[in-house]
Simulated scan of single mutants.
Amino acid sequence: MAKDFDAPRDDGVIDNLEELNARSTSTSASAIDIDEFEAAEGLELPGADLSSEQLAIPVLPPLDDEFVCTACFLVYHRSQLAGGSSALRICRDCYRT
């Protein structure tokens, strides 16, 4: 079916301020009241003490053909090492920026 894009639309656009105010007060009256303490119960804050936590995955050191980028601290294969000084181990992505 062809659609006439030049025809006026009625997508529920509110033309007057009174109708807008009536809709906004009716939606705010039905807002859900959430207890902040219950919502924040499962959140972990940055800087929290995690010394008693155990890692879920084993941590492996970089292999002989891998390096850690000194800019983004991600482990890459040596083929991603940017050209230049080998003292600064920077990946190609960080070298471009």
Rank of each mutant, 00 (worst) to 15 (best):
Ile32Cys: 08
Leu17Tyr: 15
Ser30Leu: 12
Ser28Tyr: 12
Gly84Gln: 05
Pro46Gln: 05
Ala71Gly: 00
Gln80Thr: 03
Ser52Met: 11
Val59Ala: 05
Thr25Tyr: 07
Arg89Tyr: 01
Pro58Val: 08
Ile34Arg: 09
Glu38Tyr: 06
Leu50Pro: 01
Glu36Ile: 11
Pro62Gly: 03
Thr27Gly: 01
Cys94Glu: 00
Asn16Trp: 05
Ala29Glu: 07
Leu60Asn: 13
Asp11Tyr: 14
Arg92Glu: 08
Thr25Trp: 06
Gly42Trp: 00
Phe73Gly: 01
Asp4Glu: 08
Thr25Asn: 12
Ser86Tyr: 07
Leu81Asp: 00
Asp11Asn: 14
Asp6Leu: 13
Leu81Ser: 00
Cys69Asp: 01
Ser85Ile: 11
Ala7Asn: 00
Cys72Ile: 13
Asp49Cys: 11
Ile90Gly: 03
His77Glu: 04
Arg89Val: 06
Met1Thr: 13
Cys91Ala: 02
Ala39Lys: 11
Ser86Lys: 13
Phe5Gln: 01
Cys72Ala: 09
Asn21Ile: 15
Gly84Ile: 10
Lys3Val: 13
Ala7Asp: 02
Ser30Ile: 07
Thr27Asp: 05
Leu43Glu: 02
His77Leu: 09
Leu20Glu: 06
Thr27Ile: 10
Arg92Asn: 14
Ala2Cys: 11
His77Cys: 09
Ser28Asp: 10
His77Asp: 06
Ile32Ala: 08
Ala2Val: 14
Ser26Lys: 09
Phe67Leu: 06
Glu19Ala: 15
Asp4Gln: 11
Asp35Ile: 06
Gly12Ile: 04
Pro8Asp: 04
Leu20Asp: 06
Leu45Gly: 00
Cys91Gln: 00
Ser86Ile: 12
Ile14Ser: 02
His77Tyr: 08
Ser30Glu: 06
Leu55Cys: 09
Arg89Cys: 05
Leu43Ile: 07
Pro61Tyr: 02
Ile57His: 12
Arg78Ala: 07
Ser24Asn: 12
Phe73Lys: 13
Ala87Glu: 14
Thr70Gly: 07
